[in-house]
């Protein structure tokens, strides 16, 4: 059984600390080169390999990541 996940990131509230980047087991999160309204390099997804494990959401200090998953 495999899962496919999706994350929604509140980019305006992301502070770009990057704590979620090394904890992602599928390496699908990176800091963007663009900045948000406050000048932080927000987090974004770079590929489609998310499995919905919610590791990124668990460590996010600002709770800006929502995680969704479904069976495939």
């Amino acid at each position: 059984m495999a899962f496919k996940g999706q994350i929604i990131i509140d980019t305006e509230h992301c502070k770009g600390c990057g704590v979620c980047v090394p904890v992602c087991p599928m390496k699908c999160i990176e800091l963007s080169k663009e900045v948000n309204g406050k000048g932080y390099n927000f987090t974004h997804t770079v590929n489609d390999s998310c499995i919905g494990c919610a590791s990124c959401a668990m460590v996010c200090p600002d709770g800006v990541i929502s995680v969704y998953k479904k069976k495939i």
């Binding site: 996940g5 999706q6 509230h13 502070k15 770009g16 600390c17 990057g18 704590v19 932080y40 919905g52 919610a54 959401a57 668990m58 460590v59 996010c60 200090p61 600002d62 709770g63 800006v64 990541i65 929502s66 995680v67 969704y68 998953k69 479904k70």
Partner: peptide
């Protein structure tokens, strides 16, 4: 058909925390 695994709890207000980026206080 996606199910919600995790979302920000409603017990936290919408205020942006003043803590430095990456601070353990937020978590």
């Amino acid at each position: 058909g996606y199910e919600e695994v995790y979302t920000r709890t409603k017990v936290l207000t919408d205020a942006v925390m003043h803590y430095c980026p990456g601070c353990g206080h937020g978590t």
